[in-house]
């Protein structure tokens, strides 16, 4: 036992040293959940900086940031929420930086006994529950309502809409079969799980205002330099190319 004590102390010491280097903390919009993890891993390999992300609806992250949540970077799903952070004097820059554009898709399970997803499907009465993200706080939810309104279907579909907390939950409602169809993000529809279980239809882009996704580094960031570095990394050509494969349209 006595021989093991130095080993134990050494272990504790090395673990605490590893913990002393706090990770870069990222507040990320829920549509980034399938996209960001491999990018964070590449960032760690390229720079040695470990990053951790929390995924929520953009409005929720904004509330958290305004109430002092200790994030370094905010990757939102629109430009409005990071602008609010700027307006509250909590950002390190004067305006959010656009880093990608989101795409709205209509998704159904293959075993849903419905025709393949299309605009026609939205008029189909067999769709009893259509899941969308909360339009009051999730940019994809706002886009979904805008698209249904442009189609003149919003009032008719309103009683059949089920509202999810964020775009991740909207996908989960329809993937679990509890909703018949869902207006979700292309990033969710392109995950291996959802490509295996269902199919999607890209909603025409003229039906909703673009989902322009913006980022800001936060003024109170504990790792300001690493945060700026991450933003540059995100805007670099290879990473932008990777975003394109995951369902986001690059800005560059």
């Amino acid at each position: 036992m006595r021989k093991q004590i130095p080993v134990l102390l050494l272990t504790i010491l090395s673990v605490s040293l590893a913990c002393a280097q706090t990770p870069l903390r990222i507040a990320a919009a829920a549509d980034l959940q399938p996209v960001l993890p491999p990018i964070l891993e590449e960032f760690r390999q390229a720079t040695g900086v470990r990053a951790e992300a929390s995924y929520e609806a953009s409005a929720m992250l904004t509330t958290q940031i305004r109430n002092g949540a200790p994030y370094d970077v905010f990757l939102a799903a629109d430009l409005g929420y990071p602008q609010r952070v700027v307006d509250a004097g909590l950002a390190a820059s004067a305006a959010p930086v656009p880093y990608a554009r989101g795409t709205l898709v209509l998704w159904t399970r293959k075993d849903a006994h419905l025709p393949p997803p299309s605009l026609e499907l939205l008029r189909n009465l067999a769709v009893k529950r259509l899941s969308i993200a909360n339009p009051e706080r999730a940019p994809y939810g706002r886009a979904a309502v805008a698209a249904l309104t442009s189609l003149g279907l919003y009032e008719a579909l309103k009683p059949r809409l089920v509202t999810a907390e964020n775009i991740g939950q909207a996908a989960q409602f329809v993937d679990s079969g509890n909703a018949d169809a869902g207006l979700i993000s292309l990033t969710a529809a392109l995950t291996p799980r959802m490509t295996a279980s269902g199919s999607y239809f890209v909603m025409p882009r003229n039906l909703y205002p673009p989902i322009e996704q913006g980022a800001v580094v936060l003024r109170n960031a504990t790792r300001r330099q690493a945060a700026e570095q991450f933003l540059q990394f995100l805007l670099s050509a290879p990473v932008q190319g990777q975003l394109a494969k995951s369902g986001l349209t690059p800005v560059k």
Partner: peptide
């Protein structure tokens, strides 16, 4: 699923108000 009259309870309303 936040449906008024069916599943939107008072605690959900409170949550929505805070988030908005």
């Amino acid at each position: 699923g936040d449906i008024p009259g069916a599943t939107r309870t008072l605690s959900i309303v409170l949550y929505n108000q805070v988030e908005n």
